[in-house]
Design a protein around this nucleic acid. Structure first.
Lengths: 244, 244
DNA sequence: CGGCAACTTGACAATGCTCAACGCGGGTGG
DNA sequence: CCACCCGCGTTGAGCATTGTCAAGTTGCCG
């Protein structure tokens, strides 16, 4: 089975054989976590770093009103909290959406990995891309209208999942309910439902039993004004292709 | 004149005398920048790190539709792009809002500073707080309704400016137009105008010629569900007070 | 087969947007 | 010093988008 973490990191640049080996080591002690389960709760002090190997997780906050906002999707290859060592308490929660397999990596282990220059740089890149993605989500929710928000999110996931080898063509598993999608893009479940139907009617997507097909990638990207620059995937001269 | 950067960093923890001296050094070569001026544009490759000493700047993106989304306010003591060394191109622009004074710090200088453990840790903290703030803005725009979005933003600025000594009581300079506020919270200029009037009518704030007074801090915080935990100000045992 | 969660649909209400006009105020040039 | 102008703030009316509530329907899992 492919190492999703290595896959992802090599989207930034190739890693030495030895580093890849090291990453394979780290990933051994995976554990299964059920869906809708907190990995860390707001207010807690994290000790280990969580790395997602399978499934979808998310960062989220719940307001006193009961409204929940999802602030990030964590997909295979993503770290949950790479350098929260410094902050004492979590200001948000992290929970699985689907069933996941997760690795807990100790602080010591992370520091050990960071001594490898190529890995350290790749970790940095991953953290910066996470932040850039967060910014794009703010743009999505703040500046795009409902239909394009959803479309944009689907485009982003296509690229992100593609870099870790979790797409087949223009199709991927989206193990998420419409209500969760709604909490992501700042809309109502009902409204998201209607939007999905419009996207289907427009021949842009197919979505049945958590299986998403993007029928016309170019048209969906154009429709949602999708500009992939914030994922910083194509910055190296040569792109490694071993995950596709 | 107080060193806003030191002020801010010491909100995380006290710095050794020598470190403070070093930071004072760095700040000497300030330059003035007019309002509404780009510091970096999307697509460019940054060389230096910008540090704001006076005035307000912002991160922003402009969509093809013309809609602009402001993704962060950069106030005195804030770095614009502490570790974008790694990414090749900017995925967003940074521009001044008001007239500013800015210091350009070379990459070498930053690395030099990062060798001081206390400074390095404080820089880390600052970067993580920036990210936490970004998350809170996503919550703000995605999950709160218009009136509370604005109120929440005003509360946040009160705390942030207070830590760098730019408030007098519950009052501070807000050198920003209503249209810019609108681009920040994902609303229309017209609507922001009406909201401000409602906040005034409710006796929560006063805002005249860029001068904001929060008339009832507790009520405004309660109204906007403001929880300052994401600013991570009170995590150290002893809070330094030299900036107040 | 039952049950529950997710999805779907409709009618209506509320929130926020658009467009358009006007006032105010500070700065500039005559 | 005055007049003008332009950017910003303000206001109103009507409209569009999105939310709310409530009632089905579907589909999966036990």
């Amino acid at each position: 089975m492919v190492n999703r973490l290595t896959c992802k990191l090599e989207a930034f640049g190739p890693l030495p054989e030895a580093d890849r080996f090291l990453l394979d080591e780290v990933i051994r002690s995976a554990q299964a976590v059920g869906p809708r389960t907190d990995l860390i709760r707001e207010g807690q002090t994290p000790s280990d770093v969580n790395l997602i190997l399978e499934g979808f997780a998310c960062r989220y906050k719940v307001l006193p009103t009961g409204r929940r906002q999802i602030m990030a999707y964590l997909v295979p290859g993503d770290f949950c909290d790479l350098h929260v060592f410094i902050l004492k308490t979590m200001d948000h929660g992290i929970a699985t959406l689907s069933a996941c397999t997760v690795v807990k990596i100790s602080r010591a282990r992370i520091l050990e990995l960071m001594e490898r220059p190529a890995i350290a740089k790749a970790f940095w890149w991953a953290a910066l891309v996470d932040e850039a993605t967060l910014r794009e989500w703010l743009v999505n929710v703040g500046a795009r209208k409902a239909e394009q928000r959803v479309a944009h999110l689907l485009c982003e996931l296509l690229l992100r999942l593609r870099t870790v080898g979790l797409t087949t063509g223009n199709q991927y598993e989206l193990p998420i309910t419409q209500a969760e999608l709604a909490d992501t893009v700042g809309l109502t479940g009902v409204h998201v439902n209607r939007i999905l139907q419009r996207l289907r009617a427009d021949g842009l997507i197919t979505l049945r039993s958590k299986n998403l097909v993007i029928l016309d990638e170019e048209r969906l990207k154009a429709f949602s004004n999708f500009n992939p620059n914030y994922l910083h995937l194509a910055e190296q001269d040569g792109l490694p292709e071993q995950c596709l």
